[in-house]
Design a protein around this nucleic acid. Structure first.
Lengths: 102, 102
DNA sequence: GCCGATGTTCGAGAAAAGTCGAACTAGTTC
DNA sequence: GAACTAGTTCGACTTTTCTCGAACATCGGC
């Protein structure tokens, strides 16, 4: 219903792990971190937009990303600081490993 | 087929995250860490053993645990050192958070 | 060899997730 | 207000995961 991102404290750690446990979504997070703030449409452009939108919703609802509208586009960014605060090192460790193993 | 645990380096990070993203399995890991080395049957004893065995298999195949037979029992332990080496801080962070939010 | 104890595997049903075309919404521009 | 752009939602389908009873395997001990 609501388009709002959750408070990170309200999200179970299992939901965060689950969101990151899908290769497609992890790709998106990797790309997103490389790009900084970017429109939804720039991530995994090989996928149909319905699929992309689905995965971005999972990431958003897990508290990993924020979206902000600007014109017709929606800009995405990783909630890195908040994530680092609640899960120190987690994102860095996961992304470093994902980057190394490819 | 094989009963062997995988090399941790052969397991995709997504598989590790997936294994930890299920509340039942995360419970098992928490209990397991508290108990050190313990027989399979001591974790989540509220569940039927087929279910328990299923989740323990997921954990094993994700490289999170090792099993060793001793008499009729199989002793389980977390591969903490190996995990810490490949994913520094990850397990600590996840388990600390899970312990805090309950 | 027969039990009892501990786990695994099989198989079937239920629930959850992933995929993606098509229809829809919201904002911008002309 | 028609057309265009960027994303979301709906609906249907497929695939994966979860659950758990029942049958099976393995290891003692008697």
């Amino acid at each position: 219903m609501t388009d709002e991102e959750p408070q990170l404290t309200d999200v179970p750690v299992t939901a965060v792990l689950f969101a990151l446990s899908d290769p497609t979504r992890l790709d998106m997070v990797i790309e997103l971190r490389g790009l900084g703030e970017t429109p939804c449409g720039t991530l995994r452009t090989d996928l149909p937009k319905a699929t992309r939108s689905h995965h971005l919703k999972v990431l958003r609802e897990a508290g990993l990303t924020r979206q902000r509208r600007e014109g017709t586009a929606k800009y995405l960014r990783l909630r890195e600081d908040e994530l680092a605060q609640r899960f120190p090192g987690l994102l860095d460790t996961v992304l470093a490993d994902a980057a190394a193993h490819r």
